[in-house]
Structure formats: structure tokens, C-alpha cells
């Protein structure tokens, strides 16, 4: 027990403690950490008067909210549609999860070329049908939309795969009973499938949410945060603060804010699993007693 605790403390907590300590320093990368001056909570408080940080936080929240909700709807929807025995299903499933397996930098590059104003496939297609070109990456509304679309393309399969697994492990008896009672397709989905899938869906959703808050490479390659600050998500802001502005303390403070948000989500996930477990336990006991 003791060695395990020691290893955990050193390997897990030391880097986090280091980051927390760094967030109280005015530290630039040309200094060793010992040479940096201690500034208390200044890095944390000054961020709230930093318009760019606030804008970046807003962008992150907007991005995470949109991608996760759209991905959930599309992913679960696809799973419900494809939960049947079609020939070639396994091939189809493999193809579906391909986007997830591509390196993020490559995803960014692919989409950047597809969004290219003149030679990109989207504008070329639009033009050939006689429509105007869309400023995919050069307009603040469209560029955020563009990165949301790319993220949905990449990560919907994740939700699809998990929902499909959940669907296929649903108790057949409940569905059969419903069918015999004459429930329509929609009724089965709304009253039986979705409620039974809910525990998996919530965990999936939280995992995606945590991931969406940390997305970096795809945005970095596609827009590098622009135009203006319209796609400068928090992780990009942190990276720039550390390397471009050379303010390691401020970057650490930002990371800690992000960590807090993610921690709250994780705790929410933990609490939810605990509650549902205890509820299942209670139900089981009730059944046994009965």
C-alpha cells in the first residue's frame, strides 16, 4: 500500500502541485523557477480584467456546448438507426469510426483545405451550383461554425460507438414485451431504449465535454484562433500565453481555472454514477425482499 501511495503522490500530484505553485509566480521561461518572483493571487485576479481571456472563455463554452449537444443528437440518432442486422454492418461501423483515429493535426489540415476559399471543395461545390462562396475561415461567425463542423465530424463516431454498444446490451426482454404490447418504434425509443441507455449516455456526454474543453490541435491548424479572437479556445490561449507572451505564471493560472471546470464536471460524473449505483442497489434489494 505504502509504495503505491508514494508513487501516486510523486507521479500524479507533484506535477499538479508544481503547476499550482507556478501560478503564483511572475515567471518567464528565461528564468529558472527559483528566480521568479512570488506575486500571490495576482495572476488569477488579473485574468478577470483581461478581455481576451474572457472572450476566449466564452468561445470555449460556446464551442463545447454546441459540439457536445450536436454530437450527442447525431451520434445517438445514428446508433438508433443502425442498431439492426444489415449485411456489411461491421464494415460500415469500422468506416464510421475512422475519423476518430486520424491524428488531430491531419484532421485540421484536411478541413483547412476543404474550407479553402478558392480551391476548397465546399466553395467549389457551392459555386458550381451557382451559389456565392462562403467565408468559411475568414468570418468570425463562419469560422466558429467551421471548427464546430470539423469537431462534429471527428467525434460523433465516438458517441455513436458507445451508444451502439449500449443499445445492443439492452435487455431483449423489455423490448420484446413492449413490442408485444404494441409500442410503436418511437414509443420504444422514447420510453424504453433511451431511459435504459441513460447511464451510458451521461458518462459519454461528460467524457466528450471534458475533451471539448481541451481541444487544441484542430483549431490551431485550421484558424490559429482567428479571425480576431473568434476561435481562440482556452487551450490555445494557454499555449500562446506560455510560448508567445512568455508568461508561464499566467498560463498556469489559466490552466488551473480550466482544471477547476473539468474537475467540477468529473465530480458531477462521479456523483451521478454513485447515485445511480445506489439506486440500482436499492431496487435490487427491494426486489430480493419482495
Amino acid at each position: 500500500m505504502a509504495p503505491a501511495v508514494a508513487v501516486m503522490t510523486v507521479a500524479l500530484l507533484y506535477p499538479i502541485a508544481y503547476m499550482v505553485y507556478a501560478s503564483f509566480l511572475d515567471w518567464n521561461p528565461s528564468q529558472r523557477i527559483g528566480e521568479a518572483t512570488f506575486v500571490g493571487l495576482r495572476n488569477y485576479t488579473s485574468l478577470w480584467s483581461d478581455e481576451s481571456f474572457k472572450e476566449s472563455l466564452q468561445v470555449t463554452l460556446k464551442f463545447a456546448a454546441f459540439v457536445v449537444s450536436l454530437e450527442m443528437v447525431i451520434g445517438v440518432g445514428l446508433a438508433l438507426l443502425l442498431d439492426r442486422n444489415i449485411r456489411g454492418m461491421s464494415v460500415l461501423r469500422t468506416i464510421f469510426i475512422l475519423p476518430m483515429m486520424i491524428a488531430p493535426i491531419v484532421v485540421g489540415l484536411i478541413w483547412r483545405y476543404m474550407y479553402h476559399p478558392t480551391v476548397g471543395v465546399f466553395n467549389k461545390t457551392l459555386n458550381s451550383f451557382g451559389f456565392e462562396s462562403v467565408p468559411w475561415l475568414s468570418d468570425s461567425f463562419w469560422s466558429l461554425t467551421s471548427i464546430i463542423i470539423a469537431d462534429i465530424w471527428q467525434w460523433t463516431p465516438f458517441i455513436f460507438i458507445l451508444s451502439l454498444a449500449a443499445l445492443q446490451s439492452l435487455p431483449k426482454s423489455a423490448l420484446e414485451a413492449a413490442r408485444i404490447d404494441g409500442a410503436s418504434g418511437w414509443q420504444q425509443i422514447i420510453h424504453i431504449k433511451l431511459p435504459l441507455m441513460l447511464p451510458v449516455l451521461i458518462v459519454t456526454c461528460l467524457l466528450r465535454l471534458i475533451d471539448a474543453f481541451k481541444v487544441l490541435e484542430v483549431v490551431l491548424v485550421m484558424t490559429n484562433g482567428g479571425p480576431g479572437l473568434s476561435t481562440e479556445i482556452l487551450s490555445l490561449r494557454i499555449a500562446r500565453t506560455a510560448s508567445e507572451f512568455r508568461e508561464l505564471g499566467v498560463a498556469a493560472a489559466m490552466s488551473n481555472y480550466l482544471l477547476l471546470v473539468l474537475m467540477m464536471l468529473t465530480i458531477a460524473m462521479f456523483v451521478y454514477t454513485k447515485i445511480s449505483e445506489s439506486r440500482a442497489e436499492k431496487l435490487k434489494r427491494a426486489v430480493e425482499e419482495y
Binding site: S138, S140, G226, E244, R246
Partner: peptide, 23 residues
């Protein structure tokens, strides 16, 4: 100067807003 990186980034994003958002 050492703080140029930060000013440069701010200048760059503000000008981008001028170019793309008609600020």
C-alpha cells in the same frame, strides 16, 4: 522589447477584427 510578444498578438488580433468584422 521583452513584452513585444504580447503587444504584437493584441495588435494582430485587433487588426484581424478590422479586416474581418469591420471594426
Amino acid at each position: 522589447i521583452p513584452v513585444w510578444g504580447k503587444i504584437n498578438a493584441d495588435l494582430g488580433t485587433s487588426l484581424s477584427k478590422v479586416l474581418t468584422e469591420d471594426l
